[in-house]
């Protein structure tokens, strides 16, 4: 049974069809890259997986471990182990990053019937994750994404992923806006996260992240559906020839 299985997904936004029969299956232990040109529906796909309001699912299903999650609330999907690293993380002044992270980790613990981690234990974990991502400890005290640089926001997403330990991480253009050093730090974070029990879906426009996080499968999304799938060499081919080549 696939960890993630998307069947014939159709999604409208403002009465315009964006996803038009998208199907994808990802097994535990795998990394899949979903690539596509601008406007192909990549971000819509990522957001629909996370249950963002404003997207109208008109057909098809999304399942995790065989259970249909198409209609679940965002927090319920999170409780089942789904995580979306946002393309544009939201700035929330007044709520410290630490407070936010603790609230999230506590919510997950409660759902699993585990004890919430103690404050010192949690702070230790958060500091450890921050240092792995080359983030200063003060970063945890600042407001959520408040005044963060583009690179800091992306690293903050990966930090959350490391702390929440999801089973399925969907990374929406996490590589965009990163300089090469930050890209390597983020890639190292993703590689550290990968294991046999979880899976990663990388949604990206460019293949450069794939130099550092090597995918098991590469899919090309155009016109709201997967038009081609292959191994890593497909990404390299796209880099060389562009997306136009697929229409030929």
């Amino acid at each position: 049974m696939s960890l993630l299985r998307v069947d014939e997904l159709r999604v409208d936004v403002d009465d315009k069809t964006i996803l038009n029969g998208l199907s994808l299956a990802v097994d535990a232990g795998e990394v899949h890259a979903v690539m596509g040109p601008n406007g192909s529906g990549k971000s819509t796909f990522a957001n629909v997986l996370a249950g963002r309001p404003g997207y109208d699912v008109t057909g098809g299903t999304i399942a995790m471990d065989g259970a249909d999650i198409t209609e679940l609330a965002p927090e319920e999907r999170s409780h089942r182990g789904l995580f979306l690293a946002f393309q544009y993380p939201v700035e929330i002044p007044g709520v410290s990053n630490m407070e936010f992270l603790k609230a999230a980790v506590d919510a997950q613990a409660r759902i699993r019937g585990e004890d919430e981690p103690s404050a010192p234990e949690f702070i230790g974990r958060a500091r450890d994750a921050a240092s792995r991502l080359d983030l200063d400890v003060d970063f945890l005290k600042r407001g959520v994404n408040d005044g963060f640089s583009g690179g800091e926001k992306k690293r903050n997403e990966i930090l959350q992923m490391l702390l929440l330990e999801p089973r399925l991480a969907v990374l929406d253009e996490t590589d965009s806006g990163l300089d090469i050093d930050a890209l390597q730090v983020v890639a190292a974070g993703i590689n550290a996260f990968r294991d046999e029990g979880n899976a990663v879906v990388l949604v990206t426009h460019y293949q450069r992240l794939l130099n550092y996080v090597v995918p098991d499968r590469v899919h090309v999304l155009t016109g709201g559906r997967i038009v081609r799938s292959g191994d890593r060499s497909l990404a390299l081919e796209l880099e060389e020839k562009g997306y136009g080549w697929l229409d030929a």
Partner: peptide, 20 residues
């Protein structure tokens, strides 16, 4: 939505936002 996507339920998410 950002809070909820991290597993925080809607009431708590709104509360956190208001408090901030």
């Amino acid at each position: 939505h950002y809070f909820r996507s991290r597993g925080i339920d809607e009431d708590r998410a709104r509360g956190l936002f208001v408090r901030g």
